[in-house]
């Protein structure tokens, strides 16, 4: 952070001679652009990326927008292309957020691929997936039905309405409910934006509007604290359970208080590692096997050649019994 501050100062004030260390020019560069910086989830991916960069001997660049704004994300990707970074992975806010630069990346021979959130049909080289969107959507519904039964009302609180990956998960939740549990009543999703306050407000309102509600799903990790708080302050621990896609560290205290029944997530650190590994693989021109054994990862990784998806594995379910075994 301090060296960054120095750099920032150098640009804005021009202390001309604060020349920083020369770049190791012969190292390959792999970049990852998250949807948003400053949230624990993507931070963990950055940590994984750094570990992979050390193991594989590449430079890893992590840079993302401070608001979930597609133009800001696009600007970051464009600048990485201009810098000649050889492999760039993006967790897209929306398919359109990389569409304008796919061609220019190809022209420069840069490998542009997606990770964490996909843009199918965009011409991306590969999609590094944590789990399939379908797997994520169905797991959470199946786990909830195990706890509250089929005959229940369930609310959904998401973050930004424009996040295409979150909307895809919600779509699969609805599909799963319609196909397997005809009696289950999934309420229409509500959107809280990025703040915990709004998530709490909306969850409180949902519980008031539906006294028979049995569970609330927090889709974006930023909505987990709000949903849990609303259940706690409404005094509904035990009668309403929260669930969502958030990391063990974020959810730990809610899982222990009983406001949350469980959360579904993968290990983002491993996903970050896999992303950088895939970038290195693309730079070296090596193709992916149907099953890849990677030294830095716990389990082998499968590759679906038809869809171009590299899959980390099935999502994990965290409950109050196992949450203390994880730290991310």
């Amino acid at each position: 952070m301090l060296s960054q501050f120095k750099k920032a100062l150098a640009v804005s004030v021009l202390s001309l001679v604060v020349a920083t260390a020369a770049h190791a020019a012969d190292k390959h560069k792999v970049a990852f652009v998250p949807q948003l910086i400053g949230i624990p989830y993507f931070n963990a991916m950055e940590a994984g990326g750094n570990r992979a960069a050390k193991d594989l001997g590449v430079d890893f660049i992590y840079s993302g927008p401070v608001d979930t704004n597609p133009v800001d994300q696009l600007q970051i990707v464009q600048n990485l292309i201009d810098q000649g970074v050889e492999a760039i992975s993006v967790s897209v806010l929306d398919a359109s957020s990389i569409a304008p630069v796919v061609e220019s990346a190809k022209a420069k021979g840069i490998k542009l691929f997606t990770s964490d959130s996909d843009a199918p049909d965009s011409g991306r080289a590969v999609y590094v997936a944590q789990a399939t969107d379908e797997g994520l959507g169905t797991t959470i519904v199946d786990e909830l039905v195990k706890r509250v039964g089929e005959d229940a009302t369930i609310g959904i609180v998401s973050g930004e309405a424009t996040a295409s990956n979150l909307n895809a998960w919600i779509g699969f939740m609805q599909k799963e409910a319609a196909a397997k549990y005809p009696k289950l009543k999934l309420l229409a999703p509500q959107f809280a934006g990025g703040t915990a306050e709004r998530a709490a407000q909306i969850s409180g309102d949902l519980m008031a509007a539906n006294p028979d509600i049995k569970a609330i799903i927090a889709v974006a990790s930023s909505t987990c604290p709000g949903v849990a708080q609303a259940i706690e302050t409404a005094g509904k621990i035990g009668s309403v359970i929260g669930a969502g896609y958030c990391s063990p560290n974020t959810a730990r205290s809610y899982l222990k208080s009983g406001a949350f029944g469980f959360t579904v997530l993968w290990d983002p650190e491993q996903l970050g590692y896999l992303t950088v590994w895939a970038g290195k693989q693309l730079i070296d021109g090596k193709s992916f096997e149907a099953e890849n054994k990677i030294a830095g990862l716990d389990k082998p990784v499968t590759y679906d050649a038809a869809k171009g998806i590299l899959l980390l594995g099935p999502p994990a379910v965290f409950t109050k019994d196992n949450v203390d075994k994880f730290n991310f």
């Binding site: 949230i39 934006g193 990025g194 703040t195 915990a196 306050e197 709490a200 604290p225 708080q229 974020t250």
Partner: peptide, 14 residues
């Protein structure tokens, strides 16, 4: 006191 959590986007719409 209410949320026992401070996130990065805190207060952005207030």
């Amino acid at each position: 006191a209410t949320y026992r959590n401070v996130e990065m986007t805190i207060g952005s719409t207030l």
